[in-house]
Every structure is written in C-alpha cells, then in structure tokens.
C-alpha cells in the first residue's frame, strides 16, 4: 500500500492533551473525506488510547506520548506509544469492564471501544518499558 501522508507527534502526558490528540488525528484523516461517523470513531479511539497512556502508562506522572498517523488511499494506521509501566496481561486488560483502577470510576471499556470503533487493534506492551497501541481503520466500508 502506498503511503499518501504521514505525521509523527510527541506531547506530554497531560490530560488536556487528550482533546489535542483526537482533534489532530481527526483533522489529519479528513484529507480522505471520511464520513462524520468515521471521524467520530477515530476521535473516540484516540481519546481512549491517550487516556490509557496518561492514567495507566504514566499513572499521572510526567512522561512523553508519541502518536503517529499514516494515511493510505482509503485507510489510516494510528500508533500511540508511552514509555510507562506497561500492561501485565494484555489479554485480561482487553476484556470489557476490566479496570486496574476501580477507585477512579473508570469503566474498563477503553480497549473494547478502540476495538469496535476501529477495524484492527494491536497492543504491544512490556512491563517497565511501556505500551504501544496500533489501530487501523478503512474508510468507505459502509458507503459501498
């Protein structure tokens, strides 16, 4: 697949960057003329991934989050990486309603939402090294 466009971005693990990251991703994919629903899906998935990096990866401490977006003719790959604590068991973390921080009123739906709003979700994590979330979405799937 030929790459049409690409960006790489680094920002601090501050919660007001959740909105920044999803707006950047939405603006970038708009080049492919997606539907409003597709844009909303991307914004939601990015928001979940960045929130996870802040709350779980860095546990509220200062760190750097990297985000990259690669556009193809009718699809996008998005990668969000932190160098935080890592996930002990990715399979368990992916389960709906699982949360490692029940006291924070988190729903445990982050990965479930990423999975169902995007077409592909891959989570690479190592304890003490960090986590990378790779997501892809193909546009125009519903248009026919």
């Amino acid at each position: 697949m030929e790459i049409i466009n690409e960006f790489k971005l680094e920002f601090l693990s501050k919660s007001n960057n959740e909105a920044f990251a999803r707006v950047v991703a939405a603006a970038f994919v708009s080049q492919l003329d997606p539907t409003l629903e597709e844009v909303a899906d991307i914004k939601t998935a990015v928001s979940e991934a960045v929130t996870n990096a802040i709350i779980h990866g860095y546990e509220g401490k200062k760190g750097t989050i990297k985000m990259s977006c690669t556009l193809y003719e009718s699809s996008v790959d998005i990668e969000i990486t932190d160098e935080g604590r890592g996930i002990e068991d990715v399979e368990i973390a992916r389960q709906p309603m699982f949360t490692s921080k029940p006291d924070l009123e988190r729903s445990g739906m982050g990965f479930t939402i990423m999975e169902s709003f995007m077409d592909k979700l891959e989570i690479i994590s190592e304890i003490g090294k960090g986590t990378t979330v790779k997501m892809s979405k193909t546009f125009g799937a519903q248009k026919k």
């Binding site: 914004k43 939601t44 928001s47 979940e48 924070l104 988190r106 729903s107 982050g110 939402i113």
Partner: peptide
C-alpha cells in the same frame, strides 16, 4: 458533541 468512556464512569458513579 464528543464523549469517550469517561462518560460511562461519570454516569455509573
């Protein structure tokens, strides 16, 4: 206009 899973936690709480 936009909500992520944080809204679930808020409403359920």
């Amino acid at each position: 206009g936009f909500m992520d899973s944080s809204g679930i936690g808020l409403v359920m709480g």
